[in-house]
Amino acid sequence: MTAATDYTLAELCIVAASQSFADEGETLGTGIGVIPRLAASLAMKTTNPDLMMTDSEAWMLSEPNPVGKRSADFVPATESWMGFSRIFDNVWSGKRHAMLGPTQIDKFGQSNTSALGGTYDKPKVMMLGARGFPGNSISHPNSFFVPDHNTRVFMDGECDFVSSIGYNPARLPRGHSLDDIDIRLVITNLCVMDFGGPDHQVRLVSLHPGVAVEQVQKNTGYPVFIPDTVPTTEAPTAAQLDIIAALDPHNQRAHQIKGNPPGNRALTEA
């Protein structure tokens, strides 16, 4: 496979994020947001044809739907009903891998989707609420996508509200071990990370082309474990780009990362 030279950062992130779903076999892949959804869709079309996906509404599909408005004669490849109540039956079975974008992610991998600042009774900023994060985080593997890697998302200290369980020994439920918690990849506009460092410390997995280690650390509010060698995030292949384009005919991916920069930032800065 030949790597493409002309690709956007969004496309690089989609390909990197699709790795989350590559080895999952027959499991429900849920990507919330355009890039996570395209990542799961790409995995289903390439590395993991056994992956299961829904139409983000109420049907399970045997082929992922293209994102956005579809032509009137489009026929989705439905294979079963999968309404929201049934989603929870699936979540609690553990046969799911979700990729979501919380507002805060702390050094334990705990995340916040609920409220920022102030007190719990009177938060400074009320957000969505805990949604399904508590259940997802203790029931099945999860990955995160962060379109703007900065110290507000990866903040110092603990999340203002802990929506999802992470590798925090102080909050570990009795009878559980930290290994019961399964946070996989964290894909950002700078790099790919995981929680595979010593004692589940956040670890740099790969750097996007043209990004330096220092940039990642500077934009993360807690120490990132840096292995001796850090590879560059693999560039998309031409075949992958074609599949992504077909899955996203309205180019919604161009609006997911501020300024829609090219995937290899060294090229623009040189």
């Binding site: 719990y120 805990a130 508590p134 259940g135 203790i138 029931s139 929506s163 439920p173």
Partner: peptide
């Protein structure tokens, strides 16, 4: 259920017992 364990759902809801 396991759901809620380790999160602020439990700490902020004293009425929900573990």
């Amino acid at each position: 259920t396991e759901v809620g364990l380790g999160t602020d759902i439990i700490t902020q809801n004293p009425d929900i017992k573990v």
